[in-house]
Write a protein that binds this DNA or RNA. Structure first.
Lengths: 204, 204
DNA sequence: TACAAGCGTCCGTGATAACGTACAACCAAT
DNA sequence: ATTGGTTGTACGTTATCACGGACGCTTGTA
């Protein structure tokens, strides 16, 4: 009944007013899940007429009900409101990229630190016996950010907030990056792994 | 006067009610910027008493005013609300992971499709002359999501909404994933690349 | 001491968000 | 045609959000 994809009608209708822009998004997500207004009303605890008004942008819901709606869509409110700030393509060339090294730990940022960037990808090489961060470093990221690590070669141990997780080659781990953490290589060969920091909070 | 950091009091106090959790956060951010209630009121266009009530969790602001408050703090509303979604660690083992193949294009999901997942990492291998997606596939993702691709080996061409971008080994590219796009390998050897879908809203 | 200027919060009023109910339009199965 | 069950939306009432104005409070300064 509704266009399930991103509406191409108004190019920059959103951006400024969150209330107006959530509507189409809620509707898109709802019928992407195959839910009726009453279905979502049941799941979210928000009345169906209210949902209708919100979807059409006729009202600006309270954070409370917006949160309920997001929950009904199995999303965080933050996720529901995440409609982008401008489209662009950014290419980061391998040549002339900044490399860092500190005591058996080399790494390289693969993505440019663009404003509005949501995922920061970096490639790490950890020599046998070495650990990331060391002691004095702040080994955690912005509150709310999440890190996904993929082991490309070798073995890796993640120490996260006390507990320890052993990773084999090819394994991946996802965790909240605002907790103190670091990696260790207890193997015999150098370990290569990829780190993805997603959804970090940003200012400026 | 106020704890400047995110309150660690109750483990899952937030998650459900966004309204209650934004309050302390707004206050923390505000006096981190050294602003008074009236300062922020002036910057945001929201009355000072209202700001006070919101900060103390005595009311659940409308998305409209919440957006104004976020703007006054030089944040997007999504960023302002990004302090929830419980903590967990999810490990995806290399063994027993689902692989897919379709005409010269093999790929593998490296991260488990968890609810609330923010970054989806997948490893792709593209044979010479092959393209991803092909013709009938829906080659775009949820509205608002963003994709970062890192070329691990070989060369890769990204066709995004008409325009074409050539990538060398080690290059990375970031773009809005809700635009139609696909990849091509015009080189002589197989290309290995990594795709990170960030801020994707849940699948299936 | 007194004054002024700043702070955060309480008050009363108009605007509106959110609810439950009821309605017209649509489709499948009688 | 006529049901029964959907769908999404219009109506009227209640709850509450959001405002301007006033209050008590702590500062620095005359």
């Amino acid at each position: 009944m509704t266009k399930a994809s991103v509406p191409a009608d108004s190019p920059r209708a959103s951006a400024k007013d969150p209330a107006a822009s959530v509507g189409p998004r809620v509707r898109a997500l709802r019928d992407a899940m195959g839910l009726s207004l009453r279905d979502l009303a049941l799941r979210s605890g928000v009345s169906a007429p209210m949902l209708s008004q919100v979807e059409r942008g006729e009202t600006s819901p309270t954070l409370a009900v917006a949160g309920k709606i997001a929950a009904g869509l199995e999303l965080t409110l933050s996720q529901l409101l995440r409609l982008d700030e401008g489209q662009h393509v950014a290419i980061s060339r391998a040549a002339g990229r900044r490399r860092s090294e500190r005591g058996g730990h080399r790494f390289e940022e693969l993505t440019p630190p663009l404003p509005g960037q949501r995922a920061d990808v970096s490639l790490h090489v950890l020599e046998p016996g070495a650990t990331t961060g060391g002691a004095a470093d702040p080994p955690m990221h912005e509150p709310g950010s999440r890190e996904t690590t993929v082991v490309l070669a070798g073995t890796l141990a993640l120490v996260l907030d006390g507990s320890r997780h052993e990773l084999q080659e090819g394994d991946s781990v996802t965790f909240d990056a605002d907790l103190p953490h670091h990696f260790e290589n207890e193997g015999r060969e150098a370990t290569r792994f990829l780190a993805v920091i997603a959804a970090g909070l940003r200012r400026s």
